[in-house]
């Protein structure tokens, strides 16, 4: 065997060994951290849900949505009060524009759009949306249609997502009413 080939084999072998060891360590660790990460996500979701209806006693499991017209709404939860009556629904919606992606929860109760809580927003002006648009909206100081806030495209996306959740809610209720 030629000397250079031998050398390349040795060098490649060592690099491969280091990479293999690194992959093994990471995979082992992943076994331990993955359940914890899932649990954290679940807890965060429950905490976010609890913000919507203070008098709700419990929430349903995450229900998947079968609605052909929905482009943003992914799934929803039902909120029940002490007598097991539905107070309202919380919809998980996700949308994207040229600036990034927004995932958020929208509460819809009796056909009205209630609170909106952002889960993730990768847009550059994410802070502006929260400070200038969502916080005032949630406090009742700003109408949902007033989207000119310095991050208008994002606000418009949020409005479109909330409106869609409202119409999905209407269709769901009419289906259940039949």
């Amino acid at each position: 065997m030629n000397e250079t080939v031998k050398k390349y084999l040795k060098v490649g072998g060592i690099l491969g060994l280091i990479a293999g060891a690194s992959a093994a360590i990471i995979c082992t660790l992943n076994v331990f951290t993955e359940p914890k990460i899932k649990e954290n996500e679940f807890n965060a979701q429950q905490a976010a849900l609890a913000k919507f209806y203070p008098d709700a006693k419990k929430y349903s499991e995450e229900l998947s949505l079968k609605d052909a017209k929905a482009t943003y709404v992914l799934s929803y939860w039902k909120a029940f009060d002490a007598e097991d009556l539905v107070i309202g629904n919380v919809y998980k919606t996700s949308g994207r524009n040229a600036y990034g992606a927004i995932t958020m929860l929208v509460g819809v109760s009796k056909g009205e759009i209630g609170k909106i809580v952002l889960v993730t927003n990768t847009e550059t002006y994410a802070d502006t949306i929260v400070e200038e648009y969502l916080d005032p909206y949630n406090k009742g100081a700003r109408s949902l249609d007033d989207t000119k806030c310095g991050a208008t495209k994002g606000a418009e996306l949020i409005r479109a997502m909330a409106k869609e959740a409202q119409s999905v809610d209407e269709r769901l209720n009419s289906k259940e009413g039949q």
Binding site: S22, I26, L29, T33, K36, N40
Partner: peptide, 18 residues
Amino acid sequence: IVIIATFVTIVKMLTNAL
């Protein structure tokens, strides 16, 4: 780089979990 990337991934997982 591989060694550093390994530790960064470990840190990423641990921070995400804890």
